[in-house]
Design a protein around this nucleic acid. Structure first.
Length: 216
DNA sequence: CTTTAGATCGTCT
DNA sequence: GACGATCTAAAGG
């Protein structure tokens, strides 16, 4: 596997669970005009397994304007508003018509930390939230990275069918910088906030890095 | 330390 | 009119 921005084939896999696991240790970036590069190491994800998954927005084939992006091909963003306040970022997986995806739930902040603090409204350097907390939680990380509903449906990876120049305009993208995540670094649990999903609420579809893992 | 309420809005009943 | 793939501050023990 080569380093660099991930390719569409990475997300085209037929199982969101595999993609979720592989996204741990990758870098999620935004590069938004007038603000610059922000990003960090992905530490927490959840897989949503399509029409059979009672916790998925596409359960039982449900389809509406809200979740239309989920039905697109792997490698684009599905952004939705949660609780009227928070933007959630999913990376769509699998092929067009199969609505699977991975919810990004946590990062270790690495690039553009001051920009991310500013977006979070954190100005006091002594604040308890001046550490990794600024990109911990799915709502917090989208706010820190400046991800909004306008990114819903946006391509977040390289596309072989497009010439390289077109990829330079990606505002959101995921990059492999060579971090290897061993099995003993990964904790697997049920997903958060999906108690309504009956037996699917308990399935081990959340992956996160052991908190003791340190990088750099 | 744990629990609770309030914020806030698109979607579905 | 209810309810989220959430977060925070504040109150309680």
């Amino acid at each position: 596997m080569q380093f660099g921005i991930l390719n569409k084939t990475f997300f085209a896999r037929d199982n969101a669970l595999i993609v979720a696991r592989k996204l741990l240790g990758k870098f999620l970036f935004t590069n938004i005009k007038e603000r610059g590069l922000t990003g960090g190491i992905i530490t927490e994800v959840e897989a949503y397994l399509g029409v059979k998954d009672m916790a998925s927005h596409a359960y039982n084939g449900h389809r509406s304007n809200r979740n239309e992006s989920l039905y697109k091909e792997g490698g684009i963003a599905y952004v939705h508003l949660c609780y009227g306040i928070h933007n959630m970022l999913n990376i769509v997986t699998n092929k067009e018509g199969i609505p699977e995806g991975v919810l990004i739930r946590g990062l270790i902040p690495v690039y553009g930390i001051n920009i991310m603090k500013e977006r979070r409204g954190i100005f006091n350097l002594k604040s308890a939230k001046s550490g990794n907390d600024i990109t911990k939680g799915p709502g917090n990380l989208t706010k820190a990275l400046g991800i909004e509903m306008r990114h819903n449906g946006a391509l977040v990876c390289l596309d072989d069918t497009i010439k390289n120049g077109n990829n330079l305009v990606l505002e959101v993208f995921i990059e492999d910088k060579g971090i290897k995540i061993d099995e003993n670094m990964v904790v697997i649990t049920p997903r958060i906030g999906v108690d309504y999903a009956r037996e699917w609420a308990k399935k081990p579809l959340r992956f996160h890095l052991n908190e003791k893992i340190k990088f750099v």
